[in-house]
């Protein structure tokens, strides 16, 4: 399963206006891992993601997806292997109906019509959006758009799933639904997010970017417990790891168990 590996070595990217977005980033993500890439605004997260499927070319350094080095000639293979879900689903859903949108990738892969139909149905059922298949994208709610956007990528059976801010702009229920969906995937998953609670729940490993460099790379809990590191990178602990807002007492690290005292003092009975 070596084709599920993502290897980035000394990646540097300078935009044409001279902005150095990535100075020197190196990491290796192996099969089945779920990795959160976090960092302040402008730390280089989006730039990094755009390299993973070859939309941006590195100024220097290199990227390997499995055994394939990323280059112009290997782009079609890489794009099939790495499925990318963009932050704004309106950018991703450009076809007249949900069905057409989910079928867009498989058709480009040259699949036969009957296979495409079957694949689209399977994937839409997986994300719970089969009832929307004939709807135009502008008639969907934010949460529905997001799920369909994920389906458009899953329909190409990628080995690696890359998502930019997947829970951005969703209501709490839609966010929970989406997280449950992502948790069930067996793919290698890479997210960027400011939703650190989601990162805490879904990722076993976190890469912290700061000013275009990998500032830290390690197990999620270890990194979220390093307050000095987080402060340096303009981050803070996920809310569920912070003290109770009412009595100030802590919670079990990494758990969502509420502080019993806060219930007592706010008049709730447990």
């Amino acid at each position: 399963m070596s084709h599920h590996i993502v290897e980035v070595k000394n990646l540097r990217h300078v935009y044409s206006d001279g902005t150095v977005a990535l100075k020197d980033a190196s990491f290796r993500i192996t099969h089945g891992e779920s990795v959160g890439i976090i960092g302040a605004n402008g730390a280089g997260k989006s730039t990094l993601l755009l390299h993973l499927n070859g939309y941006l070319e590195p100024t220097s350094g290199n990227i390997r997806i499995g055994d394939i080095p990323l280059s112009k000639g290997t782009l079609p293979d890489i794009r099939r292997t790495v499925g990318m879900v963009f932050q704004d689903p309106d950018d991703q859903l450009f076809m007249p109906t949900v069905f057409d949108d989910v079928a867009f990738g498989p058709f480009n892969l040259g699949m036969a019509v009957a296979d495409v139909e079957q694949r689209v149905t399977e994937v839409l059922e997986l994300v719970g959006a089969n009832h929307l298949r004939d709807k135009p994208p502008y008639n969907l709610s934010g949460g529905e758009k997001k799920r369909v956007a994920i389906a458009t990528v899953l329909s190409m059976s990628p080995d690696i799933l890359v998502m930019d801010e997947p829970t951005n702009g969703l209501d709490p229920f839609a966010r929970r639904q989406l997280m449950a969906l992502i948790r069930d995937f067996k793919h290698t998953r890479i997210f960027t997010s400011h939703d650190l609670d989601m990162v805490l729940e879904l990722c076993e490993r976190v890469i912290v970017l700061h000013e275009g460099e990998v500032w830290a790379d390690g197990p999620t809990l270890e990194i979220f417990n390093n307050e000095k590191l987080l402060a340096e990178c303009r981050l803070e602990k996920p809310l569920s790891m912070q003290g109770c807002p009412i009595c100030g007492s802590g919670r079990l690290a990494g758990s969502a168990i509420p502080c019993p005292k806060s219930y007592a003092s706010s008049g709730f009975d447990s």
């Binding site: 079609p76 099939r80 990318m84 963009f86 867009f104």
Partner: peptide
């Protein structure tokens, strides 16, 4: 900018210039 992002999303899904609508 949006047009660029849409193009990016199309490329990411293997767009090569042909539209297949069934």
């Amino acid at each position: 900018q949006r047009a660029e992002r849409i193009h990016m999303a199309m490329l990411a899904r293997g767009f090569t210039g042909a539209f297949h609508a069934h």
